[in-house]
Design a protein around this nucleic acid. Sequence first.
RNA 1: GCCCCUAUCGUCUAGUGGCCCAGGACUCGGGAUUCUCAUUCCCGCAACAGCGGUUCGAGUCCGCUUGGGGGUACCA
Length: 489
Amino acid sequence: MSEISATRPVRVRFAPSPTGYLHVGGARTAIYNYFFAKHMGGTFYLRIEDTDRKRYNETALHDLMRDLKWLGLQWDEGPGCEGDCGPYFQSERLDIYHREIKKLLDAGCAYYCFCTEERLQEVRAEQEKSHVPVTGYDRHCRNISREEAEARIAAGEKAVIRFKVPETGVTEFDDMIRGHISYQNELLDDLVLIKRDGYPTYHFASVVDDHLMGTTHVLRGDEWISSTPKHELLYKAFGWQPPVWCHLPVILDKNGGKLSKRKGAASVGDFRDLGYLPETLVNYLALLGWNPGDDREVMTIKEMVESFTLERINPKSASFDEKKLQWMNGQHIHMCDDAFLKGIMKEGLAAKGIDLSNEPEARLDEIVKQLKPRAHFVQDLAEMAVYFFVAPTTYDEKGVKKHFGEGSKEVATLVRDMLASIDDFKTPVIEKGFYDLAERCGHKVGELVGAPRLAVSGVTAGPGLWEMFEIIGKEEVLRRIDVAMPLMK
RNA sequence: GCCCCUAUCGUCUAGUGGCCCAGGACUCGGGAUUCUCAUUCCCGCAACAGCGGUUCGAGUCCGCUUGGGGGUACCA
């Protein structure tokens, strides 16, 4: 199987069906395909599997491409980047499928089936009742001759085209991450290749397209593993070389159940809305089932691409742990450069209706510097920055109990007067002022900062007080303390 | 029912027969730094699903059991 990669440049694909949002499981499949292509210097293409006309969703298609781009997984070929193997929408390739199915029909590897939905249901019900080991289509139409079938179709009868699966023997294949797998052919049924509406099924379209588009490796979800012998048989019928198979384990929720929107965030869009960086999501998802072979965990996309190999993908399905995702987001925020973070903060502030047009950039830079190590989500930046621009109108309830209690007014007055006497309102000077004051009046510094902090910011947590005061400025700091003074005792 | 995949701390994982009385990370607990919070840094808790083989030796190989997941569509 490694012969393929040795003789042909790697070509892999992400082939979603535009029926709903991009699930994190799907995202990870895309990530691995992208990583592998980039690591091997190959091509990553996007193919849209829109052969189910009932479930097709235009919005889903649009969102899917937006989310992929947001994650940084730009495809080399596909919608919007036409390559040599298009069209990349299966719905635009119907003539190709019809051309290819004719080959199978001519070779006697496929046949027309006239069975109705009702008959199929009856057959299935009967099989369930009798507990036979073999289920599926009973091959009722398998021996109808080509001539008879075509005559019936000419006469107006509707038919599907099925694959003639060998009745005996074993179909075997190698999976890159699971090893050798074999299925008894007698357990496989004659799957439908072309549906009654003329559209191909997934099985047929994906095999034809993967071959025609030069796909060397198929990295796809675990749920396809039991269809793989059928695909393998189709390749054989066509006389084509199958790709290297690589079936990825699923991603489960914290409790080992299915990750679903009902139980929380499950799609790429959900996590974006929650305030995660795309770099975080890609990093975390990549590590859910893969590792670089050393202890590195927080990695850039570039680093992961460099270390990525199929051999290091795990066969076991993994649970999604949002706690670790959160931690990792903090790590990635630390890695972002300040200018980028400032942009995010400005956007968030603007969304809150705060006018920044007269703000000196240097002041914004200083705020970002203070907030950066405290942010876990991108929107934290703007949320924590508000009081630098707007005086608090309410004060944290617990903070009021703790810091505005008996004696606080006296302390605040002392602090206020000390601050008022400072001409050079800078961090080290303010700090010295607090320490001198503490010594002078016999308090610990810690006892001096609670009330002023709450008065100025409205909250009890935040950047260093001296830094914060410098940024807000002497005049405004004094004003805010005065405003809060009546609330103290 | 039948078929297939899977199984190391609560979670993500390292481990490819001796280097493992099992290592790292998240979480959690404790501590240091400190004006609060966060960051950072130390320390700690915590696992080879069970049972049988193979072997001088098994987390690592094989079998069975159990648990988990998937498939069994004219959906992907």
